[in-house]
């Protein structure tokens, strides 16, 4: 294929999913705007947010790319209900990594803010928020990514092009809502 053919195909495959995920990103911006009082209640939360959202993208983006490659190579069958051990291993690894790294990011945020003498919530509060948000959004993301990659592949779409935007859209929408739920829960239970 010529450069022009490759570029045209890549553009057409990616545009619809990118547009959908941009709508998800704008929704996340609205939720973030509505969280101003929570951001004030839990100092350090704003610093932690990019790390939490990025960890979702990293872990589930890589999981999706791995499933895509497995589908392209014929290692995994795109059955409506996944019945391959490889799929469940990839999902389990993503959940473990996602929650562990979220907790780690919370600890780093706390340490950096203390070192810089900036205001911060307690270590326990930040870690609890990160872990609860990681679990809630992880479940939503694992389901969304597997369904999108498999259903897309069965319909002849390239899962490589679907996975990134699906992860970002689901990650932004569910990630921000999960974070809101986690913050309210932890604060209600006495953190802050």
């Amino acid at each position: 294929m010529s450069v022009r053919d490759v570029a045209t195909q890549a553009y057409r495959e990616a545009l619809p999913a990118l547009a959908v995920s941009a709508v998800g990103g704008l929704f996340a911006g609205l939720v973030l705007g509505g969280m101003r009082s929570d951001l004030r209640a839990v100092s350090g939360l704003l610093v932690l947010i990019p790390a939490l959202l990025a960890t979702r993208g990293n872990v589930y983006g890589a999981m999706g790319a791995k499933l895509s490659t497995g589908l392209h190579q014929g290692l995994i069958e795109p059955t409506p209900i996944p019945d391959d051990r490889r799929v469940y291993s990839a999902v389990a690894a993503a959940m473990v990594n996602g929650v562990a790294v979220s907790a780690f990011a919370a600890a780093v945020t706390y340490g950096v803010l203390v070192a810089l003498a900036r205001p911060t919530a307690s270590l326990g509060t930040l870690v609890a928020v990160a872990v609860v948000a990681g679990l809630l959004s992880g479940i939503a993301l694992a389901v969304a990514v597997v369904v999108a990659a498999f259903a897309g592949y069965r319909r002849g779409l390239n899962p490589d092009t679907l996975v990134g935007p699906v992860v970002t859209t689901t990650g932004d929408v569910f990630g921000m809502v999960a974070l809101l739920a986690a913050v309210r829960l932890v604060v209600a239970l006495g953190g802050g």
Binding site: A10, G25, G29, P50, N158
Partner: peptide
């Protein structure tokens, strides 16, 4: 409002390219 969507769209552009 622009912050998450700018970061997310930029990450998407990179991740689509990287996956391909």
């Amino acid at each position: 409002v622009l912050v998450p969507v700018t970061i997310g769209t930029a990450g998407n552009l990179g991740s689509v390219l990287a996956a391909r």
